[in-house]
Structure formats: C-alpha cells, structure tokens
Nucleic acid binder design. Structure first.
Lengths: 246, 246
DNA sequence: CGAACCATTGATATCATTCAAGGGCTGTGG
DNA sequence: CCACAGCCCTTGAATGATATCAATGGTTCG
C-alpha cells in the first residue's frame, strides 16, 4: 500500500526519492481503531504524530443535549493531533467513522526529518496551513451556503482531497459516511440532508449509493457550490522553499 | 501603551522580564489602516509577522452575490498573516473594522526570539493552537447553535479575549462592530441580529450601546451560549515547556 | 432470519430571510 | 450652529428554509 501521507505531501511540494523514502520509513504501523469509537492517545509519546493510514475519522464536539457537530473530516494521509501536548486540555474529540488504521511518527523522527530536509519541512508547514484554510472554508460553508450548496461543496472538497491521495476513480470516490454524519457535519438534520441529496440527484449532478459517490457533472456541481479548489492549496512545486525565501 | 501581544502571550506562558522586553522590542511600530479598508501587505518581508496593536479587524470571504462571511475577528495582540508566504495564493482577505494600528516583527527578529527563548517559542506555538481552536469553535457555533446562542457565545468569547489583553472594565468592554458585521460573522442578516439583540436585552443579559457591551449576568449568558472558555486556552503557566516535554 | 441501523416520506411548527419603510444618530460643510 | 447626507438601527408583513415528530421500508450483518 502506497503511503497516503507521502502521496498528499507531494501535492504540496515536489519531493526527492530520498525524502519520500525517509517519510515512508518514519511512519511506523500503528493500531486499528473500530468504527464509531474514539481515537484516544493518552500515554502516547506526546511529541509523536498520528497519521491516518486507512479509513475516515472526524473531529467533533458533543453537546449535552445530544447534538453533535463535526468540525472536520480526516482522510488517509491526514494528521490527527494538533500538537495537543502543548495545551492543557483537548477541546474536542476525534472519532473513527469507519475502521481506521493509524500510523505513528515519533517526535525524534519528526525532528530529524524536518531538520534534514527543507522540502519536507516546507511540505509539513503547508499541510498545516491548508488544514487551517479548510477549517475556515467550513466556517464559510456553515455561515453562508444554503443546504444544497453546502452539500455540493463538501462533495467537491472530498473528491479533491481523495484525488490528492489517489483514492478516486475518475469522477467516483468512496463516501463511507451516513446521512446522519453528513447532518452532523453540515449543521442540519439527517432528514433535511436526505431531501437535499434527492435534489442533487434530481439535478443529475451526483449518484450516491453503496458508500460510493459519483459526480456526473463536476463543473456544474462546483458552480452550484461556489467551490474554488484554491483553498486546498494542492499545487505542488510552484512555490519557493523556506530556505529560498529566507 | 502596554503591548497587547505581550499581554496576550502571558496568558499562555508566564514570561520573564527579559522575554517581555525582548518581545516588546521586536515589534516595530507600523502603519495605520483606515476603517473599512483591506489590510494588504504585498511587497512586505514575507517572513515578517504583522500584529494588531490597536483596533479591530476581520478575516472574511466575499462572494460574487454580495454576501460576505467573516470567519474570524482580530483584536489587539492578534497576528495577521498565517505564514501566507508559504502558499501560492491568499484564500481570504483581512479587513479593518475600525481604524487599525499595525506593528511588525521581521522574520529575522522572530527567528532570533524563538531560538533564544523556549518560553516565547512555546507561547507562540500555543497562540497558534488557540487560534485553530477558535476557528473550530466558530464552526461549531455556525453549525450547532441557535441565533441567540451564537450571539451570546460571541459576546462571551470577545469579552474573554479582551480581558486577556486588559481591555475590559469589569463586565463592560468595547464592541465597535455594527449589526451588519455581526450578521456577516454569524451567518445571519442584520435584521435578524437586531431582533436577537433585543431578545438578549429583554432577558436582562446585556446592554449594547454606543459601541460598548455590558454583560449583566455572565453566568447566565455563558449557560445560554453553552460557552466554556477552555477552548481559548488562556491559562498561563500550567503546562510544561517544549523542552521539558521533549 | 431477526435486530439494528439506515434511508425515506408526509405533515406541521419554528426559525430566519426578504422586502419595504421609517426613525435616529453622527459627522461634516456651509 | 444648523442643515444635510449617510449610515445605522428598528419595525412589520410575507415568504422561504429547515427542524421536528412520527411512521414505514430497506439493508446489512451477526
């Protein structure tokens, strides 16, 4: 299995063979987390970084009244812990949506890598910035997009992200997420998600069946969603390295 | 004028006198930006960091149809540029809400500071993590809170952040933002913001007048908003330093 | 071959937007 | 100091979007 983290970082910076191997090498195979359970890591090396190698997860906040808000979806190649160890308390939870295979990069390995390769350092920095940009875009979606636009936007984003890690098959990609989860992510009820999905299907834009999504008209879907992939910053090689800019 | 950045970072890590002076020294007085104009910095030292020294600003996305979504409010002591220089394109705009006084820390100064003081390094890291947590909390607000809860939550957050930089006077703090801006931030129309404000006033929770906010019953307001200040991570000194954890 | 979860549907209630208009505050120039 | 313009706040009525409640089929997996 090609390492999805390597695949993704190459979308930020063109990497040398040595960098690729170094990175793949640094990721030690981790544990398997069952679907619908939380990903916790007390007692782990606090400087270590967890990577999703397979499966989908999410960051979420649970309210006392039972409502749940998913604030981010984590796909293969995504990093889990936002350096939590620097803070006193975790302000949200990470949960597995499907069964999730986790990998780990130890703190020492991480430091050695970024110290030795400016390109890897840059790639990891860009990854963090892209993650922040994604979080802003979710804020925009929830604040400014209508139900159908929101859902369309999510599908555009997920397809683009999955393409970046080689998990798409043309216009088709996995979508192993229930309408309930979609509702928790979009700030809507599953009932309304269901009706919105029917609307998208009725417009001939998508097919969503058996946990797979097909986008029949990417251009029309993107236009409907006001989707502009720029915020994902998945454009390898076009920027200067840290060293060059310094 | 005490430096608001120093004031804020001290909420993340207890700083030595030397660190305080070093930091205050590093911030060179910058330019004044008029209210309602964009804060741009092409041609600036790309490794430099802009700090808001006075006034309020916001990050926002403008849509073709005229709708605007504010994704973050920037107060004195907040850092403007999310290392934009590492990316190819800015995915949002920063605009001044009031007249804004900007300061600048050059890239070299920044590197020297973090290299010399582990505490300052940790403080800046925590600042970044707190910013990310805040962005997630905005996502939660827009996705899961009702209109009145959202507004109540915003007021709780802003009062806490302003308190962290010494700009509150008991339960009163500045609130130099129009109902239109509030609408753009909360994903609602100014008309609805107006009605929600009246509801909050009617409940005896707040007074908002002449650009000043008074919270009459902080506990009740926080309960209504489901506000838990933990995500702001404004708890100095209780964590270990980077070095100690390594 | 159930049991549990997931998707779908209809009717109704609630929340928020839109459109339109009027009133109040504030700063500025005469 | 007054008059005016421009922005900001406020209000009402009608419309639209989404939630809620309740019930039924369908799918999957043990």
């Amino acid at each position: 299995m090609p390492n999805p983290l390597v695949h993704k970082l190459e979308c930020y910076v063109r990497l040398s063979d040595a960098d690729r191997m170094c990175l793949a090498d640094a990721v030690s195979p981790g544990r398997l987390v069952a679907a619908r359970t939380d990903i916790i890591h007390e007692g782990d090396d606090p400087r270590a970084v967890n990577v999703i190698l397979d499966g989908w997860a999410c960051r979420y906040r649970q309210f006392a009244n039972g409502r749940r808000q998913i604030v981010a979806l984590l796909l293969p190649g995504d990093l889990c812990d936002p350096h939590v160890f620097l803070l006193d308390a975790m302000d949200h939870t990470i949960g597995a949506i499907t069964p999730v295979l986790l990998g780990q990069i130890t703190g020492a390995r991480m430091q050695a890598m970024t110290a030795r390769s400016p390109d890897l350092d840059l790639a990891l920095h860009r990854e963090a910035l892209a993650t922040a940009a994604m979080q802003r875009e979710w804020t925009v979606s929830l604040g400014s997009r209508t139900g159908i636009e929101r859902l369309a936007h999510l599908f555009c984003e997920l397809h683009a992200r999955l393409a970046a890690i080689g998990l798409t098959d043309g216009n088709t990609c996995p979508m192993p997420i229930t309408q309930n989860d979609l509702g928790d992510a979009m700030g809507q009820t599953s009932v309304h998600i269901n009706r919105t999905l029917q609307e998208l299907r009725g417009l001939g834009l998508i097919t969503l069946r058996s946990r797979r999504l097909t986008i029949h008209d990417p251009v029309a879907l993107a236009r409907l969603a006001h989707f502009d992939a720029a915020y994902l910053h998945l454009t390898a090689g076009s920027g200067a390295t840290l060293a060059q800019r310094a």
